[in-house]
């Protein structure tokens, strides 16, 4: 029995060491590419680096190297002016791999990225301080992931939203309570509503969680969301759901053009 436990322990430690290897190797490579300042090489490696980052998050992997990896990846995104993913990478470092030595440089880079994303200085600072983490353990990993999620959607960047949607299934497995705003964000991202409109909806101060996600005070926006939802479900061959949104659309105050549009959509269904 003792022998089996020993073998098991050795196997676990070896697997752990190998997983650390991948992060370390990717980090070293990023460091080399960033030092060269080669945009092509950096862009070419994003896919590989993101695979490693995803595996860190999916496995709730905790290591000192992770902070270096996320930070170096942020610098790599800066080379190609991918400010959304740069800010997101810094948030990942803040939430999931805290390291005090990156605080000053990290804040400068984060604020620079946020300003390029048309956020204000105040908003950037708020996001940065909201994501401050003292330490990360297996126990608080889901909660930290939740903080990352909540703050990242406020970056309002399409590439970040695409990445967050990818994490969403993982987020569900953690069985965390997701607040109304994030459920609404998920719905709006799923139906592919434009970023400006999404920002307008999510930036509303008063959020009534009793309402459906598409029930928005601004009538024009309300119609737009319903039409996008209908389009999304029709394209996904979910015709019954698409018709439901058309029915909701019918309840609104419609112009002649809106009525023609609705009739046309009914025909398509």
């Amino acid at each position: 029995m003792k022998r089996y436990i020993l073998i098991l322990l050795v196997l676990i430690s070896v697997t752990n060491l190998f997983s650390q290897d991948n992060v370390l190797i990717e980090f070293k490579y990023l460091q080399l590419v960033n030092a060269q300042g080669d945009k092509d090489l950096a862009e070419d490696n994003y896919r590989n680096a993101e695979i490693i980052c995803d595996s860190i998050i999916i496995n709730s992997h905790i290591s000192e190297v992770n902070a270096h990896m996320f930070f170096e990846l942020a610098k790599s995104y800066e080379l190609n002016e991918e400010y959304g993913l740069m800010a997101f990478s810094l948030l990942r470092q803040r939430c999931l791999a805290p390291n005090d030595s990156f605080n000053i440089e990290g804040q400068r880079l984060f604020e620079e990225a946020c300003l390029r994303l048309q956020l204000t200085h105040k908003q950037a600072r708020l996001l940065y301080y909201n994501t401050e983490t003292k330490n990360i353990t297996k126990n608080n990993y889901p909660a930290q992931l939740s903080i990352l999620y909540q703050n990242s959607i406020l970056l309002f960047d399409a590439s970040v939203d695409a990445k967050l949607m990818k994490y969403y299934s993982l987020y569900n497995t953690q069985k965390l309570e997701i607040d109304y705003m994030h459920q609404q964000w998920q719905f709006l991202t799923m139906i592919d509503l434009g970023m400006k409109k999404k920002k307008r909806i999510l930036s509303q101060k008063s959020v009534n969680s009793q309402k459906e996600y598409w029930e928005i005070e601004d009538n024009k926006l309300h119609k737009r969301v319903l039409m996008r939802a209908e389009h999304y479900y029709r394209k996904s061959d979910a015709n019954a759901e698409a018709k439901y949104y058309l029915e909701e659309y019918k309840k609104l105050e419609l112009s002649v053009f809106n009525k023609i549009q609705r009739s046309w959509r009914l025909l398509l269904n």
Partner: peptide
């Protein structure tokens, strides 16, 4: 060249840092 460089360097790093 880019692909060869990327995986070539990573292969060397793997050798240098692997368990």
């Amino acid at each position: 060249d880019k692909i060869r460089y990327k995986y070539g360097i990573k292969h060397e790093l793997q050798k240098a840092y692997s368990y």
